[in-house]
Structures are given as C-alpha cells and as structure tokens.
Simulated assay, not measured.
Amino acid sequence: MAWNRSVQYRKSGVSEITWNLTLHKITTLAISSMGTIINLVAIFVIVKGGLHRQRAFTFVLNLFIGNLLMCSVAFPLYSTPAFSPVPQDDINCPFSGYILFTLTGSTLLNLVLIAINRYVLIVRFTYYETIYRTRNTRIILAVAWLFYPIIYSLPLSELWGKFQFDQRRLFCSPLKTDDGFPYFVLIVSSITAFPSLTFCYIEIVRKIRSSNIRVNDTQSENTQRQKNERQLRRSVLVTISIFCGLNIPVIVVSIVDPKVEKLDPQFHFFFIYVGMLDYIVNTLIYSFLNQQIKSSFLNTFRWILKTNRTEPSRIRHAEIQEIS
C-alpha cells in the first residue's frame, strides 16, 4: 500500500530506523498549504485595511511575509527528499538547506523585532519617534533579512562549515560538521533571540502591572485604556506560551539526541512538525488577539461578500491600542 511506503536505514549497533515517507509528504505539504493560505489572507487584510502604514504593524507585516516564505518555499523544499525512492544528498541539497535555515533565522529575528518595538513603545515611549523613523525602520528590516543569509553563506561557500544531507531528518543541514560552526550558530541564535524576547516581554508585563496599580490608586485612567492594557498583557502571555510550547521541544530533542540514536525518529519528526505549526499559529495569534486586525478582517470580509461597500472606518491611534 502507498500509505505504508517507507525508507529504512541501518547502522551498526543501532536498531533499524523506519519512516513513513507518504505520511511525511502529506503532513509537510498540508502544513505548507494551510500556512500559505493563512499568511496570504493575513497580509491581504493588513494591506487592505491600511494597517501597514502604522510603524508597529510594519513589523507584524514583515513577520507574516517571513511566515509566508517559510510555508510556501521552505516547507515544500523540505518535503522534496521524500519523493525520491531513497532520500539522499543531491546537487540541490546546499541550496535548499540554505533557504530553509536562512528563512528560519530571519523569521526568528522578525519575532525579536516585534518584541523590541513593543518594548520601546510601551516602556521607553519617549525614544520611540527617534528610533523608529522611516529611514531607521528600513535599515532595521534590511539588517534582519540580511543577517542570517550572510552567516549561512559561510557553509554554503564552504568557507566555514558545510551543508550536509541529514538522512535521519530528511533535510540538508549545516549543523553536522565538527569545525565549530554549529556551536557558533547556536550561540548567535541564542544571544539574538531568547534573551531579547524574554527581557522585552518581562519588562512590558512589569510596565503594565505598575500602570494598573497607578490606575487603581488614582482612578484617573479611562476604562478603554485599562481594557487595552489587559488585552496587551494577555497577548504577551499567549505569545510567549505558544512560542515556547511549539519551539522548545524540537530544540531540546535536537540537543539531547543530535544523531537520532537515543530516541525513536518518529519523535524527532513529530516535534519538527509541531515546530512548523508555529509559522501558522503565531500569525493567528497576532491577528486574532489584535483588535485592529480583527476589525480589518471583518471589514475585508464584508468587502469580499459585497455586503458592505463602505470604506473601513478610520482606525484610532492610541499608545497601547496600536499594538495590543
């Protein structure tokens, strides 16, 4: 049966390893198709509603574009080895691996940019206009998109490291060499991502809590502002929880069992699929936990159905509501 089609590898001292290639193709392409549609819709809604003109939404739109590229380009490339009778290295391996890892790194940086943008807007608001001028914003986005392509050009050109086909995970990886490059990437990714995300969101929550204390003491803030702050706090907590829940398992499994010898390979693939879902879930989180994007979605939906031909109502600009 086609459903039972699998590939097997045998290594001395290690039990036989088997994957279901058909299941791998179906799962990868299903996530790819669903993610492509969801991110396209989200991008269309932001642009149609004019939200991309607001600086905070520029970074959200940038994240959605990165998610779209992951789902429409990187994931299909990841599925291609499963279409071969015996998945193996080929001439396209370095290029497919380069695209997969650079897009993964760039998308992670986009998450960091959103966190930093929110931090400056809420905690260091007096510096916001200075930091996020149009020219500065363009430079920040350019650096974010060029950072990992430059790093992974080293193993692509074999100046430092090398892309090698990982038969046990079915993708081309620069993290299998013993020349120090994998440790370099791990350190750089850890420094640029997790400390920044943790620091920014902790400070945001602390700022909101202190603001709520002042509100309760003075009774001077209006109800709408309090509602926006609660919504932002909920958005931050959900964002952190989902990000950790979807990404930490695959990172831990890769560190604990880098050669896929201790755990059943199905565990590795399961957590890889879970990590791939992050490029769909974080788009949904940033969309449905944001009142402005939700309003834009409803207006766009009415426009598509031609039940309401009026232009979307003008969005109010508020310090917290802009990104809550």
Rank of each mutant, 00 (worst) to 15 (best):
V41R: 00
F95W: 11
F83T: 05
I65Q: 03
A115C: 15
L61T: 10
H52S: 14
L29D: 06
I116Y: 09
Y127V: 11
E129I: 11
G35F: 07
L77Y: 10
Y98V: 09
M70P: 11
S96H: 03
V112P: 13
G105I: 11
A42C: 11
R118S: 14
I26C: 01
I46F: 06
N39L: 10
F101T: 06
I122S: 08
I38K: 00
F59A: 02
T137R: 10
F64Q: 03
C71P: 08
K48C: 13
T102Q: 06
Y119N: 14
I65W: 07
S84T: 13
I65E: 01
P76G: 08
C93Q: 07
V86M: 04
H52E: 11
A115W: 07
I91K: 08
H24I: 12
P87M: 05
K48P: 09
L77H: 05
F59P: 03
T104S: 11
T36D: 01
R138Q: 09
N67W: 02
T107K: 05
Y128M: 12
R124Y: 11
I99N: 01
P87S: 05
L103I: 15
V123M: 13
C93T: 08
G35I: 05
Y128H: 15
M34V: 15
C71Y: 00
L109G: 05
T126R: 15
S96G: 05
T102R: 07
F75N: 10
V120W: 00
L141T: 09
R135L: 10
I140C: 07
Y98H: 05
L61G: 12
T36A: 08
K48T: 13
F44K: 13
S33G: 14
Q54M: 13
D90Y: 06
V123A: 15
N62A: 09
Y132F: 15
F75C: 11
S96E: 08
I122Q: 04
S32Q: 04
N39M: 09
F125L: 03
L109E: 07
H52Q: 12
